[in-house]
Simulated assay, not measured.
Amino acid sequence: MNPNDETGPGRPGVSRRSVLGGGAAVAIGVPLLAREAQAVPPARVADAAPVTVRATVNGRPVSVQVDPRATLLDTLRDELELTGTKKGCDRGQCGACTVHVDGRRVLSCLTLAATVDDREVTTIEGLARGDRLHPMQQAFIERDGLQCGFCTPGQIMSAVGMVQEGPARSDDEIRERMSGNICRCSCYPSIVEAIRDAQKVMR
């Protein structure tokens, strides 16, 4: 049998040319199908029914209806107009959005508002007592622990939470325990000094 024959016994009408031609059609067809699939618009996510969140925010009871997918950060800023809490990276990487929930520091951009129902939330606006600043706020001012100030609310809230967890025993420990809060102005030496001063008063 001639190896160059296009057909063989038991394979009527089948040839290398026809197989290769079919393969080419398949190869061409796949990207066409992929493009068609990409052209199909994604299914629209159904609107979720709002949920009612009742919490104590900075010492006062609040009740607010929110989308169950809304973050605590957006709820504080957009619904309760507590804009001291800053939206930095919105991914839990910079610490600018730090607040306290039941006395513990949390990243509000990663916390669903619905999860704080019947809980106590404290923001930077709730630290001072009238005209009397919190010791941490006062220390940041005295030590000049800020430049642009964007990260400062989160730095202060995180620092207060850190001291409440247990005072740091060294500057290195302060740096380690505050490592989740980024200062793009690089005021870290002054921030460490402020925390060191404040925790003496807080104790």
Rank of each mutant, 00 (worst) to 15 (best):
M1H: 11
N2M: 00
E6V: 00
G8W: 14
P9A: 12
R11W: 02
P12Q: 04
G13W: 00
A24T: 14
V26Q: 02
G29Q: 01
L33I: 15
A34M: 13
R35E: 11
Q38W: 13
Q38P: 00
A39N: 13
P42E: 12
A48D: 05
A48T: 12
N58Q: 04
R60I: 05
P61Y: 04
V64T: 11
V64M: 04
D67V: 03
D67S: 10
A70Q: 15
A70P: 00
T71P: 01
D74H: 14
L76A: 06
D78M: 10
D78A: 13
L80H: 08
E81S: 14
E81I: 08
L82D: 08
T85Y: 05
D90K: 07
D90M: 07
R91A: 12
Q93G: 05
C94S: 07
T98F: 04
R105D: 13
R105S: 15
V106I: 15
V106T: 14
L112Q: 02
A113T: 10
A113G: 04
D117S: 13
E120R: 14
E120A: 14
E120K: 07
T123F: 03
G126Y: 09
L127W: 02
A128W: 09
A128S: 14
P135T: 04
M136Q: 03
M136V: 15
Q137G: 06
F140K: 09
I141G: 00
E142M: 03
G149H: 08
P153Y: 04
I156H: 07
M157F: 06
S158W: 00
S158M: 06
G161W: 08
P167V: 13
P167C: 08
A168E: 06
D171E: 15
D172C: 01
R175D: 05
R175S: 05
E176R: 15
M178Q: 12
G180E: 10
G180S: 08
N181I: 10
C183F: 03
R184N: 11
R184Y: 12
C185D: 03
S186N: 13
Y188E: 08
P189C: 03
S190F: 11
E193P: 00
I195K: 00
I195H: 02
R196I: 00
Q199C: 07
M202Y: 02
